[in-house]
Amino acid sequence: MTTGMRLWVYRGLFLGTALLSIAFPILPLDFSPSRMAMPDLFLALTIAWIVRVPDTAPLVLVAVLALLADAVLMRPFGLWALFVVILSELARMNDRLLRDGGFLIELAFFLVSLAILLVLQNLFLFITFAGTYPLNELVKIVISSLICYPLIALFLHYILRVRGPESKNLPDRLGKVG
């Protein structure tokens, strides 16, 4: 019973932090164009969350939030949401691999797939004759994501205490006998 409660508490926590991550970029602080591109906080949060506790970030919730982010952040409608859902499912399928491989593997997975998706997005926009994004902005996004992903991971681990299942009782060597 307590595990069920825990599940719903974590789902609510995910909803809250995801809404914050969508709202943070639109804070009315400074309207002059900035040099540093804002990373996609929502995508980073979702991937980091799914790698740690996949059950508490359900597919439908991720999809709805991704569409909301698309609407609020004035992106091409539906395209980036599609990519967010695909990437989150990829992370969900490989969650154990990413969790046990260490943080560097996880970070590399996120950055490489982010870069691929940004290029794919430009390709889709190019095919449909919509305006494409300049390449240097895309590079800036990847760099700022490189900085913010570890911060989000630390935030999840130490402040929200969103951690993967304990892996200390797994054998550290294959074929180890008593």
């Binding site: 943070f24 970029p25 639109i26 804070l27 009315p28 602080l29 400074d30 309207f31 164009p33 900035s34 591109a37 804002m38 609020v72 952040l73 004035m74 992106r75 994004y133 902005e137 800036k140 996004i141």
Partner: peptide
């Protein structure tokens, strides 16, 4: 003005 655009590609509020 209640929000920024939040995107590096467009400047709006």
């Amino acid at each position: 003005v209640i929000t920024d655009s939040g995107s590096p590609f467009s400047q709006s509020g």
